[in-house]
Design a binder for these strands. Structure first.
Length: 806
RNA sequence: GCCGGUGUGGCGGAAUUGGCAGACGCCCGGGACUUAAAAUCCCGUGAGGUUCAUCCCUCGUACCGGUUCGAUUCCGGUCACCGGCACCA
């Protein structure tokens, strides 16, 4: 019988659907297992073959867990707000709503062709008012807890999208989405105080099973550093200049200070400053140039330092009362620490470069380097010198002692800083969740009453972005005008919308209870399903979505919405599938794109799934090769032919060990995302079966169980043909017997001086001495040992014997 | 510059705690079947040497060095590529 994949795949997909095979409820008798994949943005282009890779992998995990008896939640939805759809709609004079709807239909059809064991009854759509009602609700809770605030600030402005971008969305000074130039603009923006959760976001990861590169990248992004803040007095003034430093131990080496051009003390001391116009000119120049100048230089550390000394002003080093000059320079950032630093040129590279340029004194306070050549920044080996009461101490001790000193004298204290900035949450665009805030002249920002949620996105005539940077919503005056919920006076609605990251920051919670009308999800259901047991997604989301959604989850835990704080127990990441030529598969190179619809039409979903997994190490990027599909297709054909070989029950003695080994291998490989080697193991077993030309029905069923997560349609069909009961997908996983994974006899290598000289077959588990004796009896070995002195004999059980001779 | 990762045949990639490098598959070559082709099946396939052939030998996991009976694996150094960060005091 020929392998008619089209018929088979259609038949079993319909069957799973009919029997609602993958729909789950909160079954208290079963252990739950929540598998999550990042829900797609339904773009107009549809999927390419790179997209399904993580879906198929996590489907395999889900299917295996289900067969192992877990109550598996494996849902899917649509992250459907966003710019590409909006831009497409503008260009084609359509409304984004129907465009989104069409795209979802298209994506869903493509996804369903893969035979994923998703619970489609839990589908969510971030643009559905019943969904974004709760996105808005969460925002209001953040607002009420002082974690959302509006602030006039310099923001990243994409000149093409005409929209504010979060820091995380700026890549190489260009827009992450369109690549256009990004400039700084002063605008009033909604911000979320993610920095309040910096420490929790860092600590929370510690006991989670996240792959290391996610952990390190997140930790770098959070950028925690421990140091001290220290006050420097300004001579003949009430003003103080507070600095942050990670090296308080080098305080005696501070020979000047530097403040950021935007530092407010410049205004406070205006009367004393003798060269105010010069300072002002430098500040204006710095503001203008800062952004694109940064991108011009590949190595910022080597960038020539510029600056101006503030004449008429001296600061006083609190530990030795030395008067030191104060400079303005753009190498100090207003947005980090206090916007001012004490400069220790002997032990900081940037200060060193600045001091060299301006001819400032360089004092050695940590011994160990040569400060006539370069700054000595090592903190491991240095010993303090020229530092009064710190002399002779190691750096760590000195840090402790000076910090105590500062705290005693009340001129400073220990301080922890983070590089993480607050999250710019406003977008001046149409296709996003309206921010449910009312602006009242008297009451300020007032939360919309929760009973009025969802605040619907109104229909607009034109939702093109405006050059002034105002949201298109601002043009709908009858929507904007409203009454203040607090005082009842005339007021206006906030017209900014939320970024795309909003809806995706909590979607995994909605899957737990998608039809709940009263709350985002019931506590009971959240407590049953959460946390997510295994979340796979792209590395590019590490400092964006992953961080944002953990922040929201930690917050929702804090306000009692759910019991678990950290939403994800395990995080893995997939490598990209590249074009055949090794370049990126992207819409900018249409010829590089392979459409899964075409592949499935020619080879079938099972072959497609097998190849997606067999193509290489799941965590690494790898080029697509349509020719490689053939190997998986041949494998599927050979699998289909097994039904003609299988006869009778019981076991085939020659295959028993091989079966137990394959069960073991596939079981462990799936848990470790080693899908490529699991499939290789299945291929090897099929080759062995054909070589042996015998197979029992019982064995066929074991094989089909192992294959089912990878190629579910063909497995179901053969299970049915072999007389199996019920759906294989809902059947039981198979166990192996460790003892039966071992052969009675093993071939071991015999080495002489580390080189393989012979191979012998011995009884498995033979002792070292017996193995060595057997090896020495081999004719070949005897010959090679002739006339030599044996120095050493090493045996590794069931692997090799090594005889060292002279 | 800093942090992380990777480097293995013509190609994608395998290789528990250091223990037979190249599993599995693609491509390619040879053969069988066929009127022929496709499909399928069988054999070969890291490089070099030697041999009629089997055998056998040498080299080989980016490069240089070290530890070890034994290194793709551990250590030190170098180079290349990929990803992240970017004057964060």
């Amino acid at each position: 019988m020929a392998y008619d994949f089209k018929l088979i795949e259609k038949k079993w997909q319909a069957k799973w659907n009919e029997e609602k095979a993958f729909q789950v409820t909160e079954d208290k008798n079963k252990q739950k297992y929540y598998v999550l994949i990042e829900f797609p943005y339904p773009s107009g282009q549809g999927l390419h073959v790179g997209h399904p890779r993580p879906y198929v992998a996590m489907d395999i995990v889900s299917r295996k867990k289900r067969m192992e008896g877990f109550n598996v939640l494996f849902p899917m939805g649509w992250d459907a707000f966003g710019l590409p759809t909006e831009n497409y709609a503008i260009k084609n004079k359509l409304h984004p709503k129907p465009v989104t709807k069409d795209n979802i239909v298209k994506f869903k059809r493509q996804l369903q062709a893969f035979g994923l064991s998703l619970d489609w009854s839990r589908e969510v759509d971030t643009t559905d008012p019943e969904y974004y009602k709760w996105t808005q609700w969460i925002f209001l809770q953040l607002f009420k807890n002082n974690l959302a605030y509006k602030k006039e600030m310099a923001v990243n402005w994409c000149t093409s999208c005409k929209c504010v971008l979060a820091n995380e969305e700026v890549v190489d000074n260009g827009c992450e989405r369109c690549g256009s130039e990004v400039v700084r603009r002063e605008k009033s923006q909604w911000m979320l105080k993610i920095t309040a959760y910096a420490q929790k976001l860092l600590d929370g990861m510690e006991n989670l099973d996240f792959i290391d590169r996610v952990k390190t990248q997140t930790a770098n992004w959070l950028g925690r550093s421990v140091g001290a803040e220290v006050d420097f007095a300004i001579k003949d003034s009430e003003n103080k200049l507070r600095v942050f430093t990670t090296r308080p131990d080098t305080l005696f080496g501070a020979t000047y200070m530097v403040i950021a051009p935007e530092h407010p003390i410049i205004n406070n001391l205006k009367d004393k400053i003798e060269n105010y116009s010069e300072i002002e000119a430098y500040r204006n120049a710095a503001l203008k140039k800062s952004d694109f100048e940064r991108s011009e230089l590949s190595n910022i550390a080597d960038k020539e330092k510029t600056g101006v000394e503030i004449s008429g002003i001296k600061a006083v080093n609190p530990v030795n009362n030395q008067e030191i000059p104060v400079f303005v320079s753009d190498y100090v950032l207003i947005s980090y620490g206090t916007g001012a630093i004490m400069a220790v040129p002997g032990h900081d590279e940037r200060d060193y470069a600045f001091a060299k340029t301006f001819g400032l004194p360089i004092i050695e306070v940590v011994k160990g380097g040569d400060i006539t050549e370069a700054a000595f920044t090592d903190t491991e080996t240095g010993i303090l010198v020229n530092s009064g009461f710190l002399d002779g101490l190691e750096v760590d001790e000195a840090k402790k002692k000076i910090t105590e000193f500062l705290e005693d004298k009340k001129i400073g204290e220990e301080k922890i800083n983070y590089k993480l900035r607050d999250w710019v949450f406003s977008r001046q665009r149409y296709w996003g969740e309206p921010i449910p805030i009312i602006i009242c002249d008297d009451c300020g920002f007032v939360a919309l009453d929760e009973s009025e949620l969802p605040l619907l996105l109104p229909d607009v005539e034109s939702y093109e972005p405006t050059d002034t940077g105002e949201s298109p919503l601002s043009k709908i005056t009858d929507w904007v005008k409203c009454k203040c919920p607090k005082c009842g006076k005339d007021a206006e609605r906030e017209t900014d919308t939320m970024p795309q990251w909003a809806g995706s920051s909590w979607y995994f919670l909605r899957y737990c209870d998608p039809d709940n009308k009263d709350f985002l999800a019931s506590k009971e259901k959240l407590d049953y399903w959460m946390p997510v047991d295994w979340y796979n997604g792209g590395m590019e989301h590490t400092t964006l979505h992953l961080l944002y959604s953990r922040f929201w989850a930690l917050f929702l835990h804090d306000i009692g919405v759910m019991s678990c704080p950290e939403p994800y127990l395990k995080r893995t990441s997939h490598g990209m599938i590249l074009a055949e030529d090794g370049g990126k598969m992207s819409k900018s190179r249409p010829e590089s794109i392979v459409n899964p619809d075409d592949v499935i039409a020619e080879y079938g979903a099972d072959t497609f799934r097998l190849y997606e997994m067999f193509i290489g190490d799941f965590e690494k990027s790898t080029p697509w090769a349509t020719s490689g599909m053939k190997g998986c297709r041949r494998f599927a054909e050979r699998v289909y032919g097994l039904i003609d070989i299988a006869k009778g029950g019981g076991v085939t003695p020659e295959l028993e060990v091989k079966f137990h080994r394959t069960i073991k291998k596939v079981t462990h490989d799936i848990d470790n995302l080693k899908m490529n080697t699991a499939i290789a193991g299945l291929m090897t077993l099929v080759n062995d079966i054909y070589d042996n030309n015998s197979l029992t029905i019982d064995e066929l069923k074991i094989f089909l169980t192992l294959l089912c997560p990878f190629a579910p349609h063909i497995s179901e069909e053969l299970w049915f043909l072999a007389g199996g009961k019920g759906l294989l997908s809902l059947g039981n996983w198979v166990d192996y017997d460790e003892n039966k994974t071992k052969e009675n006899a093993v071939e071991i290598a015999v080495q002489i001086n580390g080189r393989v000289r012979d191979k012998i077959i011995i009884e498995a588990g033979l002792s070292s001495q017996d193995a060595i004796n057997t090896a020495k009896n081999s004719e070949k070995v005897k010959e090679l040992l002739n006339g030599k002195t044996i120095v050493k004999e090493i045996a590794v059980q069931d692997k090799l014997v090594n005889i060292v001779v002279r």
